[in-house]
């Protein structure tokens, strides 16, 4: 990775410690621990059903782990709702796209600005100067993001009408708009062609380098993962089987076994 970043990787910012999650009798995550360092790009990889998305959902507060704890900047994220976790500075995208389908691209990204927009509904209803000023500033900010992602021409299109690759971009834009310190990206490149993947990688790297945003991403494309991430954690059957820089992971016997399968003889 070229070292053009203006933020050096620092101390742990997010800590998952001994987290276990089960649905009824099915264990999705078992006693999982790892750390995410400030300003790094951390990839979570693993075969299907390894518990990657469940883990993101735990960090984000959608699921509540039965055991263990998750710490963000020294604060426990247990027992707080997704919107409170968003307030703490963690934003995300979803595996199967969770956009506001009937709203325009601009409005979708504007929702990402929610935490920066506090106008009272009466101020909005009466179009008070404060509300108008807030709207103007945040629209401006979103226009910048739209320009950055090179989607200016679809600004006013309802997202439900956009092709998949563009929707993924819009979702990234919405997450960026929050200006969160940590972005959780759940398979940001799934279903994309090589061209689109390369573009998406460029955006992710740029965000990390220029804004210093810490990024946790789930990805299946090994090429991409090894290229862009600083550290990789590997899950298999809800357990961590490897954690370290891409080169170590590549040579980790357990990881190779999990991906290629072991001959039982």
């Amino acid at each position: 990775m070229p070292d053009t970043r203006s933020f050096m990787i620092g101390a742990p910012i997010l800590e998952v410690s001994n987290v276990s999650l089960s649905f009824g009798g099915v264990r999705a995550i078992t006693d999982t621990s790892f750390k995410v360092l400030q300003h790094e790009i951390k990839a979570i990889i693993g075969p299907n059903g390894a518990g990657k998305s469940s883990l993101l959902n735990c960090i984000n507060g959608i699921y509540r782990p039965q055991e263990g704890s998750i710490w963000f900047k020294g604060k426990s994220l247990q027992k707080i709702t997704p919107n409170a976790i968003a307030r703490e500075g963690i934003s995300r995208t979803f595996q199967n796209l969770a956009l506001f389908r009937r709203m325009s691209v601009l409005d979708n990204i504007l929702v990402g600005r929610k935490l920066h927009m506090n106008a009272h509904f009466l101020a909005v209803a009466f179009q008070m100067p404060s509300a108008r000023e807030e709207e103007r500033l945040n629209v401006e900010r979103c226009e910048e993001i739209i320009e950055f992602l090179e989607i200016t021409d679809i600004r006013d299109t309802p997202v439900g009408k956009l092709p998949y690759g563009l929707q993924k971009k819009v979702e990234l834009g919405r997450a960026l708009a929050t200006e969160a310190e940590v972005l959780l990206l759940d398979e940001p490149m799934a279903g994309m062609n090589v061209e689109e993947k390369r573009e998406m990688c460029r955006f992710i790297l740029k965000v990390n380098e220029e804004l210093g945003t810490t990024i946790v991403l789930i990805e299946h494309d090994m090429g991409v993962v090894m290229d862009i991430s600083d550290n990789v954690v590997v899950l298999d059957y809800g357990k961590v089987i490897g954690d370290g820089p891409p080169d170590d992971i590549r040579n980790n016997q357990k990881v190779i076994d999990a991906y290629l399968g072991v001959a039982h003889d």
Binding site: I62, R87, A119, V124
Partner: peptide, 25 residues
């Protein structure tokens, strides 16, 4: 005014995808 402003956007976000809306704060 409300439906065009941030108030209405919040409503529509909850309508279209409540989990994502919640994750945006």
């Amino acid at each position: 005014n409300m439906t065009r402003g941030s108030t209405g956007r919040n409503w529509m976000a909850v309508r279209d995808m409540d989990i994502a809306a919640e994750s945006m704060g």
